[in-house]
């Protein structure tokens, strides 16, 4: 049995890291949803030009790696604001805009999954487009979208580990610090794997359950 007491000694440091990972995930989900909703509204209400702009936005953010996005904002946000803002702010901006591209596509697919006849019927019933979306389309689309939102949040939780490149102390970065300081690479990394594995497995199981509930 390997000696794991050094992990207990560092528990609060690791826990702070985990908290930071979860906070980043929450910020990314909330910010990403806001951006995603804004992008979909642009698509729905501004015609061809708006559609092209959103297409370009989504294409760029989905074509480049998240690390590059983090570098962009780590370097660019201070330049635009004219003062240093630190890794934390730039990471949140990066995650928000990056996730926004993915969330807008999920929203779009969800809205598309509602049959076209529903929209026609709502319009024929005298609703305007906004009302039809609000009262007819959206309530039907939401159950299709929620599980995919949550799955995306689990992916984001794993992706927050990439703030390692700007030296934010998330769970993975905290792990590497302890692994190097105490020279206990095998035990430390194995424990980190286990923590990520269990969290993501539990979350995935929760999402699956939710999906079955909706399907009923």
């Amino acid at each position: 049995m390997p000696d794991l007491s050094f992990i207990a000694r560092n528990a609060s440091f690791l826990f702070d890291g985990l908290l930071l990972s979860l906070t980043l995930t929450a910020a990314g989900v909330i910010g990403g949803l806001a951006v995603g909703i804004a992008l979909v509204l642009v698509r729905l209400f501004t015609g061809v030009v708006g559609n092209c702009v959103v297409d370009a936005y989504v294409f760029v953010f989905r074509a480049i790696p998240l690390i590059l996005v983090i570098f962009w904002f780590y370097f660019m946000v201070p330049l635009i604001l004219g003062r240093p803002v630190g890794a934390w702010t730039s990471a949140i901006v990066a995650f928000t805009l990056f996730e926004g591209a993915y969330y807008s596509e999920i929203l779009r697919a969800g809205l598309k999954s509602v049959r076209a006849g529903q929209m026609h019927a709502a319009l024929a019933g005298g609703m305007n487009r906004a009302q039809a979306l609000r009262y007819v389309i959206f309530p039907q689309a939401i159950t299709a979208m929620i599980p995919i939102f949550l799955t995306q949040a689990i992916i984001l939780f794993q992706d927050t580990s990439l703030v390692f490149v700007v030296s934010l102390h998330d769970f993975l970065t905290a792990t590497t610090i302890i692994a190097n300081r105490d020279g206990r690479l095998v035990e430390t990394y194995a424990s980190a794997c286990l923590v990520y594995y269990l969290i993501c497995l539990a979350a995935t199981a929760g999402v699956d359950r939710l999906k079955r509930t909706f399907a009923r």
């Binding site: 580990s161 990439l162 990520y196 594995y197 993501c200 995935t204």
Partner: peptide
């Protein structure tokens, strides 16, 4: 392989 971050 899907539940552990690629970086880790």
């Amino acid at each position: 392989f899907r539940n552990i971050p690629l970086l880790l």
